[in-house]
């Protein structure tokens, strides 16, 4: 590999890691909700979109600082997430999982349409001065401060989440609920509260992701949730759905393979490459990279 090639490789690696951490950011919330109530929350992508719009509104209209806007957006989406769970999922907790899935799809169609009615069909962008982006040179390659921030935030959130789930009393209750809903309730755990809490955290993560990704790609649109949600879902499964470090790993791997595919000249197969890797990994490790082995009970 010549100098030019190495330079390209590093630049693309950085592109991939930055893209991957945006996937990871969304996948963290996805995997957490799944880990507790084994629901594929398709509306997660729409919460991500809602978070981006709330942030955009605050920054563009109310001239709020981007970080303040992010915090407000996280709070708004917490409420949104809890409401969605209360209205659309709670009653379906004991029904077939597919019913809850369809309900989630209904919520997602509803939210996307609502966003289109309010914000229009065209993409909108954050003001240029929303976040002071600077390029930092690492050797030959460039990375922007924003990309660094996203990588940092997703890593930080992963550690924080893992800490909450594994080390705190609340986390213990979450794990108990995830292990056995009924027994957990018998043990005096307020399972409804725990599940609401899970949705609140998951939605706050999605909102943070929405604002950061919205600023990074400079576009917020009503339909951004679908593809982001699918990719995040793929990332979560790749890492082993329900596993928090797995979501991070899955996101990064997906981002890097996608970008490397483009770097190798296969830009037209970009999405196919990502999903091909996913299928391949699952065939070798049927529960994802860091997923727990499913115990088949007889």
């Amino acid at each position: 590999m010549n100098a030019q090639g190495t330079h390209m490789f590093f630049q693309q690696l950085i592109n991939g890691i930055a893209l991957g951490s945006t996937y990871a950011l969304i996948a963290l919330g996805y995997t957490m909700v799944y880990g507790i109530i084994t629901l594929i929350n398709f509306a997660h992508g729409e919460i991500f979109m809602a978070g981006a719009f709330v942030g955009l509104l605050l920054v563009a209209t109310f001239k709020m600082n981007i970080f303040a806007a992010m915090v407000v957006s996280m709070l708004v989406c917490m409420v949104l997430g809890v409401l969605i769970e209360l209205i659309a999922y709670r009653r379906l907790r004991k029904s077939s999982r597919l019913s809850a899935l369809i309900s989630a799809i209904g919520v997602s169609i509803f939210l996307a349409t609502l966003a289109q009615m309010i914000f229009g069909a065209n993409a909108r962008s954050f003001p240029d001065d929303a976040f002071p982006v600077r390029q930092i040179h690492i050797g030959d390659a460039d990375i922007s401060t924003l990309q660094l921030l996203i990588i940092g935030v997703s890593a930080l959130l992963m550690v924080a989440l893992e800490y909450i789930v594994q080390r705190t009393k609340l986390g213990k209750a979450m794990r108990a609920t995830s292990e056995d809903y009924n027994t957990a309730a018998l043990m005096g755990i307020n399972v409804n509260m725990i599940i609401s809490f899970t949705f609140a955290i998951g939605s706050a993560l999605a909102a943070a992701g929405g604002v950061l990704v919205g600023v990074l790609f400079n576009a917020v649109s009503f339909n951004m949730g679908l593809m982001a949600g699918l990719k995040a879902f793929a990332a979560a499964v790749l890492g082993g759905i329900g596993s928090i470090p797995g979501a991070m790993l899955g996101g990064l791997l997906l981002g890097v393979t996608e970008v490397m595919g483009v770097a190798a000249g296969y830009s037209s197969y970009r999405d196919a490459i990502a999903f091909f890797i996913l299928v391949l990994v699952l065939l070798i490790r049927p529960t994802g990279l860091l997923g727990r082995k499913i115990q088949k009970k007889v």
């Binding site: 893209l19 576009a219 951004m224 830009s267 970009r270």
Partner: peptide, 20 residues
Amino acid sequence: DEKVKDGDKDFSAQITNIKA
């Protein structure tokens, strides 16, 4: 000769290719 898709948001990889 690079390909993107309608609805894409991330163009970093293609631009790096083009820049070279």
